[in-house]
Amino acid sequence: MSLTTDPVSGPYQYLKAQSRWRVLEVAFWLCTLLPYFLFPNYLVLASQIAITALFALSLDLILGYAGIVSLGHAAFFGLGAYAAGILSKHGWGEPITGLIVGGVIAALVGYASSFIISRFRHLTLIMITLGLGLLLHEAANSAHFLTGGADGLQGVKIWKIFGLYGFDLWGYTAYTYSLIVLFLGFLLARRITNSPFGLALRGIRENAVRMPAIGAPSHAHIRKIYTISAAMAGVAGALLAQTTETVALEVLSFQRSADTLVMLVLGGAGMLYGGIVGSAIFMIARDQFSGINPQYWYFWIGLLLIVVVMVLPNGVLGGLKKLFTTWRGPS
């Protein structure tokens, strides 16, 4: 962020330079189109990566920007997934409204829990988010009549998008749909992080003690971003339910919360792209390693995680960024 070393003539130009699109960003998004041409057999995986990336992006908004560590973010992903799934099971399979419903339900629960979240930090916060995640997981497990419990939610039927594009076996529609939603989510996140509100969030992350001393209502800020993040996670969950036409209890699992945190740390938190890159690395690694050794593939993820946090404290992207600036010359 503060890497732009070009001479700036004034505050306005400085702010403009901070938020303008960089060439690498455009290149990155063009690369997301490569799977259509290079790996047409992997579009299903690509759509899963896009969905997970959207979920990781929602976690980045609270963790990377506001410094709120959560180990229970899957609660909102799962809520969105079940909301969209149950809606379609009961006869409304229109995908766009399904996404909205998933997002709104997750946002409502996110807003309600944000009143607790905003009061705590550090270990207490991790435990509270973990607890909320477990609560919801078990609630969904026991509400068999609604969720199908451990058997999963069956009978999800999604209509064609705009009545035109049906979901196909090869994942063309699924990937296109997921990628577009991811991109829209990214645009939203990018706007938020470049806004005055985004600056306030970084203030909370950088020094929560100073914030009230400059007149900042930190709790209100946290409630707001937590709600937005929950909504985004809910949309990601709804996407998964729609593109796979089923909802497994796993969407609410601790494993999913933890995996997403790992992806974000691998890729680099607080950089928007970190979650996307991290999800791609994680999911591709899982796909490849589990092909070689289905039982022990987490061994490699564990090793990768340890190496990355030791060598690259700001994740893969943080490392690349550093490399890029050293190569470009001293800042």
Partner: peptide
């Protein structure tokens, strides 16, 4: 500082 829909510029 609560405005998230407009950019800092």
């Amino acid at each position: 500082a609560g405005v998230w829909w407009k950019g800092l510029p």
